[in-house]
Structures are given as C-alpha cells and as structure tokens.
Design a protein around this nucleic acid. Structure first.
Length: 740
RNA sequence: GGACUUGUAGCUCAGUUGGUUAGAGCGUUUCAUUCACAUUGAAAAGGUCAGAGGUUCAAGUCCUCUUAAGUCCACCA
C-alpha cells in the first residue's frame, strides 16, 4: 500500500469516527465519567514534537477509558498566548513595515485576528491528523466569551475580597515587548561586563554644599562603590554600606555628592549589603533595581527615573537623553573619567536577566500595575495539594516549595492581545486612573451605564492594560466547563481526572490552576497530574526555532504513518524523564513500529484472509469477554492454545494495570513482546501444523490484541477491526478485555 | 547558595514493591529463505548497571559518601 493510500485510509477512518459522534461525551448515560483536559497550545507557529507527544498520551488514555466503559470528555482548546503571540505577530508586521503604533489598537486587533485564524487552522489539521479523539463540539479558546466571563468573575471576586491592588511598584520590564513581565518569564545570560569603582565625594551632612564644593582640598573624603551600571548613577538617591564597615562606617550620617547630578545623597547602613562584593558600599537606585527599591523604601529615599519604558535615557541625564542603555553607559563612563570619579574598573562575569521571549535585557523600573495578593491562595493550595496525584511524585514537593515562597502576582500587561482589564475610570474626576474602593472608578465588563458618583457625568474610559495570559489560562479547568455558572458539565466532569503538561510551565500554569481552582470552587482542579519529560536534541539542548534543531512531527507522520509516530512518542513518554532525540533516533523508533504495524497486518492476513477453506466464516458473534474466553480455553484442550491464552491473559492484566498507572511505555513493551515474539514467532508458527484446530483460538487472540493496541495505534486497529467479524461498528465502541 | 533528577550494550532508552544466567529498539556479525510477513526468521557478539562503602540470605533497585551531567528556584552592585 502506498503512503497516499495510507493517509486517505486514515482520514476516512477519522471521518467515520467523527460522523458517528464517537468523540462526544455521553452525559445522559449511566456511565461513570472520566475527564481529560488538553493543555491548550499557544496560537503561535506550528505544533512541535512535544505537542504531538502530549496529544498522543492524552488520546491513548481517553481511548482506553472509553473502552473501559467511561463517559469520556477529552476537551480541546487553544490559548491566545498574550505576549508570545503579540511578539510573533509584531515581527511579521515589521516585515511589512507596519507596527502597532502605525495601525492603532482597533486595526491591529483586526489583523491579529486574521493571523490567529490562520494559525488555528494549521493547529486543527495537525490535531485531527494525529487521531486525537477530542470532543470538538466542546472546544474552547481563551479569548472567547465563555472564558472572558469566567475571567471577569475571577477579577470581580478578587476585587470584592480585597485581594487586588494597583499601584506604582518596581517590576521587571521588557523594553522590546513593552510590558511588565514576571520573574518566571525571565531567563539569565552569563555575560562578561566591566565593574566600575566609582568615587562619590563625601561631605558633612550640615555643611553647605557650596562651601564644600572646592575640589582642590586634599582632605576630601570619598566613598567608593562598585557598579556594573554606571548609567543609573543619575538616579542614585543613596549609598548603603553593610553594618560596622571598618572603613566606611564613620561616614554614616554624612552626605555624598552624586558625581553626575551633584545631588546630595545620604550614606547609611543596611544589612542587605553584601560584605564580600565590591567595596562593601552599594549605590542605591530605587528606580532601577529591585533590592535598591526595597532598601530605598525603608530609608524613604526618593525614586528617580533615568531609563524609560523604551529602554532609553530620560532627561534626568540631559546630555544622554534618548540614548540606548549601552551607548549611555559608554558616555557615562567617559563623563565620569573626565571628573576622575572612576577609581578603577575590572572585568567580571555575572548573569543578566533577559526576557524569555525576545531575549532583550530586562530593565527593572517603576510602573503602574495590577497585583493579586497571593498568600491566602497559596496557603489554601498547600492544604489540599496532597489530594493530587503527581507523576512523577516529587512534583508535589517542587510545587509545594514554590507555594511556600509565594510572591504577589503582577497580572497586568501593557499589551493589546488579551482580555482587557474590566475597570473604568471617570476621565474627568480620575484622570490618573487611580484605584480605591470609593474613587471614581467602576469594575465592569462593559462601559458602565451609570454616572460617576463624583461628577454625575458619564466620561468612562477603560483601563488600557490587559491581563497576563496566565490569569485566564489559570482558570482553564473551570472556564472550560462554564464556571461561574454551576453547569451540568461542571458538576459531572470536575475535578478533571487527568491533566498533563511540560514541566516548563509548572509554576506559571499548574500552580496557578491549583490555587485558583481551589479558591473559587473549593476542589482540586485535577486528580492526576502528569508531567512528561522534555524532548531535547542529542546535545541535550531544547528544541528551538533559532537553533533549527526541531523535528517536525508532520514529516515523521508522512514518512512512517500516524500510528508508528505515536508509538515512537510513547516510548519517550516516561513521566518526568527528559530524553534526547534526533531525526535519526525518531526515524529508528518509527521504523521499528512501522514494522510492528506490518507484522500485525500480516497476522491478520494469516488469520483471516488465508484461513483454511474447510472453516466457514464464523456465524457467532466474536467472543471477547472473560466467560467466553475461559469456556474456549476449556474446550480447546491443546496445550499451545492454553499457553497462548494464558500468556494473553497476563498481557491483558499487565497492559490494563500499566495504563491505569499511566505507564504507557510499559504497557506497550508488554503487548509488543507478546504479539511479535509469543504470538507470531511461536504460536502461529506451531499452529501451521494443526491450522484448522487452532483457528478459533487465533481469531480470539487477534481480536483481543487489536483492542489492547487500539489506544496506541487507533488507525491500524480500526482498519483491521472492520475486516474481522465484529458487532460494534467501531473498535472505539468495543469493550476493553478483562483478564481472568 | 537551596532543591530535584540522571549516570545501565556502539547509539537512544526500559527495568513496577530488592529475588534466577541484566532487557528493548537501532546498529554490528553469521546463517536461513518457493513460508502470513526480506518492513522476515534463527542465532551471535557487545554491559564490573559512574565509583566507594553499608544494610540484607539476596542490591541495577534501599542507605551513606564521592564524582560527572542536567533541570528548577534564589542571588548576582
């Protein structure tokens, strides 16, 4: 059979399943429910090998549970992926010489929607092509009204519970993305940079600055600080030394002169200054450093800004205004040198935070943002996290440790692609968009119909910012089921039985889902949480576009077929284990399972197409349940039959157990070994001598094998199922075999 | 600095609660072939299970230490 025929067979089979509604839930039945929540892929780029593995695992479990007699909900969805989508899309726009600014919010959103739709179509195709048996009628998208409604309820509840606050705080800012980001969205790059030792002149606190400004005085005192960022000196508002500094402690209470601005800045002690680093004195720049911000706050230092949100110098540095940071740094050093303020400089290595998405250096700066107080949520999560079964188990500890150490969550982003913050301000009475319970603002999804309480007029403007995408995807377990309404789906399918994801987003997503779900619905979001390993290249690096080391799952499928590709992926699906893969190792495994598929087809051919003519086609229904099988075993007295049925019985036991425990790789090993080496190599070979007698047993074993394999190889097993005597229209409707 | 994970055949990886001669796939070598299947079959070579110590009748598996690699968290003036 040629590849094209294979593919058209697969697509015919997929359509057959869909047409018969086999992916749909059966909520009115008396069956127990089993729910699986697909991690929604980001709507950027194409699906990669990791996605293919996730989908393959989810689908196998869904199919297994259906055959076991559960009413299965496998709910698919996609994520709008705020910052990532916006970055990707803006890059595309730049190629057409367009930008957000040029287009304006409305037109930009229109075009973004078109781009979204294109990505979505490509996603959907890949999904169906891999045989995913999801209930497409229940598909959810994180920007659709259903989710928006849940997110609004989420925000409103937090507001009412006094867990929300908005204000100017120091945040990690990505100048390129133009938004605040979280610690979790940053990574670090090792860089060799220069560490400058800068001298600040010290004067007595009460001495008139003018009087002390004579620089020809030899008795001048200096305090030297080490900095890698001399350009921020403009915004220095203090100098801190560690307590009881042998050299500098006598300067405490005195005043230093900022060498660039001439501002007078206090010198004081603070225990957070590292004794070992530099001179033991730290320049304090509350506007551009997290620690400095904290120290500055305690010592009531003013906050100055010398770097703006575009990563350029402000007019606080008049000579450098508008310059980028690297240029400004160079110029600042020159300026300081002319003032002989640099005592020395040396190379040193440190890691610099960059934006995980665009690799731009992150600038800590002050910005108006929204935050949630997370402590009560984390505490509640910690109380109940033990009810979730993690695969592998140590993720309970990893997540708990993080929850123990929770920080407030900055949920606002200065982007356009996402759910806009549902807060309206009276333009007239509240032009600065301040937030307070009784101020001139309203929490509302739509433009408020009522008038402002202060001015009795209607001049509402909505908050410009949107929510962090994790603020909505954190609600995924609830929003997908129609929360905040108490829907029948919510009652039936929540908590989810199974969830899986990559360990990369354990805090960003999984921890958030646990906290939010417990907070709003008082129940854990999922009973089983499966973390698959990361697929990496042979050098152990992540797959990435920039490295060009990615493996396209579609190409594997085109070459080896869907079932073979799925099987290859299962062999890498051990929970929590990273694995190294290349196109070659994937090809090797795919080839192996393609051969296995061929073996299976040949077993079918031998059994059904080349059966001895003396045997008529069986008229009775296939016997696959436990009673029929044991009857058969008794009736057939031949030792070979007994042996193979016993072996098969053990395989049924093992495969079932391993699937229950989500050990897909072990389940596969077992069934592979049985079919190839026990059934084909031994039993079938021996049966040739007594073919007619062995026929019923052969048919029986084949049928059970198809069922056992169906979760893993849905297409091949369906194709063969249709060719053997069967009562159920599809193997998807067949009952999972039960061991004696 | 803190936590976690890994080190098993040439390569990529399995090995559930400790139980005979340590497994798979690919690769390598030899032989077979009118057979359901060359997308095959039979066989072979290849491992001090990172190292050391301990517990045990018994350790790849449990404990301690050493070592190497990786991941995550915190910090990086």
């Amino acid at each position: 059979m040629t590849d094209t025929q294979d593919k058209s067979t697969e697509s015919t089979i997929y359509q057959l399943w869909e047409k018969q509604g086999l992916f749909k839930t059966d909520p009115d039945s008396t069956k127990p429910s089993y729910s699986l929540l697909m991690p929604p892929p980001n709507l950027t780029g194409e699906l990669h090998l990791g996605h293919a593995m996730q989908h393959a695992i989810m689908d196998a479990i869904a199919r297994f549970k259906r055959m076991q007699g559960f009413d299965v909900l496998l709910l698919p969805g996609v994520d709008h992926a705020g910052i990532q989508f916006e970055g990707t899309f803006n890059k595309l726009l730049a190629k057409e010489d367009l930008s957000k600014q040029k287009l304006g919010r409305e037109e930009w959103l229109k075009r973004a929607e078109v781009f979204r739709e294109e990505n979505y179509q490509s996603f959907h195709k890949t999904w169906t092509v891999f045989g995913l048996s999801a209930d497409w009628s229940k598909e959810v998208y994180t920007l659709e009204p259903k989710v928006q409604k849940a997110v609004f309820a989420e925000f409103e509840t937090f507001w009412e519970q006094d867990l929300l606050y908005k204000g100017a705080y120091i945040v990690q800012w990505c100048p390129k993305c133009g938004t605040a980001i979280e610690d979790l969205e940053m990574e670090y790059q090792e860089r060799k940079e220069k560490l400058y030792f800068v001298k600040y002149r010290v004067i007595a606190k009460d001495v008139d600055r003018h009087a002390s400004a004579r620089d020809d005085d030899d008795d001048q005192e200096y305090i030297t600080v080490a900095t890698a960022r001399p350009e921020t000196i403009y915004a220095d508002t203090g100098i801190a030394i560690y307590p009881k500094h042998p050299k500098f402690s006598k300067l405490v209470g005195k005043t230093a002169i900022n060498p660039l601005t001439g501002n007078l800045i206090p010198i004081f002690e603070d225990p957070r200054v590292d004794k070992e680093f530099g001179t033991g004195a730290l320049k304090i720049t509350p506007g551009h450093d997290l620690l400095d911000y904290e120290i500055g706050k305690e010592h009531s230092l003013p906050i100055l800004h010398v770097i703006d949100k575009k990563g350029r110098m402000t007019n606080l540095a008049p000579l450098l205004e508008g310059l980028k940071i690297d240029e400004a740094r160079e110029k600042t050093v020159q300026l300081l040198e002319t003032k002989t303020a640099i005592a020395e400089s040396k190379e040193f290595a440190h890691s610099v935070p960059v934006c995980e998405r665009c690799k731009t250096t992150v600038e800590p700066l002050i910005s108006e943002e929204w935050f949630i107080k997370m402590e009560p949520l984390a505490k509640k999560a910690l109380k109940h996290i033990g009810q979730i079964k993690f695969y592998p188990g140590n993720y309970n500890k990893i997540l708990s440790d993080w929850l123990e150490n929770i920080h407030d969550w900055c949920i606002s982003r200065s982007l356009w692609w996402g759910i806009r913050i549902p807060v309206w301000y009276c333009q007239k009475c509240n032009p600065n968009h301040l937030v307070g319970k009784d101020k001139d603002m309203v929490v509302s999804k739509e433009e408020p119909g009522k008038t402002c309480q202060s001015c009795s007029e209607k001049h509402w403007v909505q908050d410009e910012q949107i929510f962090d995408a994790w603020f909505s995807s954190g609600m995924w377990p609830l929003a997908t089921l129609g929360w905040p309404e108490n829907t029948p789906e919510l009652q039936r399918y929540y908590p989810w039985d199974f969830e899986l994801t990559s360990p990369e987003i354990k805090f960003l997503w999984i921890a958030r889902m646990i906290m939010l779900s417990l907070w709003f619905e008082d129940k854990i979001p999922f009973k089983n949480m499966f973390f698959h390993g990361m697929l990496r290249d042979l050098q152990g690096r992540k797959f990435s576009k920039s490295l060009g080391n990615g493996i396209n799952p579609g190409e594997l499928r085109d070459q080896w077929g869907t079932d073979s590709t799925r099987m290859a992926l299962y062999s890498y699906s051990v929970p929590g284990r990273d694995a190294k893969a290349s196109r070659q190792t994937m090809d090797e495994r795919c080839k192996n399972f393609r051969n296995f598929g061929t073996k299976l087809k040949n077993i079918y051919r031998f059994t059904m197409e080349l059966k001895p003519e003396v045997l008529g086609m069986p008229t009775s229904a296939p016997q696959s349940d436990v009673i029929a099988r044991s009857q058969l075993a008794e009736k057939q007295s031949h030792a070979d039959d007994k042996l193979i049925l016993n072996q098969l019985n053990n395989v049924v036991l093992g495969v079932t157990k391993n699937l229950e425990d989500f050990n897909l790789h072990l389940a596969l090993d077992e069934i592979y070994e049985f079919i190839w080496h026990q059934l084909a190599d031994v039993y079938i070979e021996k049966s040739k001598a007594r073919r007619a007698q062995a026929q019923p047993c052969l048919e029986q074993v084949l049928e059970i094998c198809l069922k056992l394999l169906h979760p893993f190889m849905p297409f091949t097993t369906e194709e063969l199922w249709q060719k053997i005597p069967h009562t159920e229209k599809s193997i998807m409707l067949a009952k999972w075999p039960i061991a004696r």
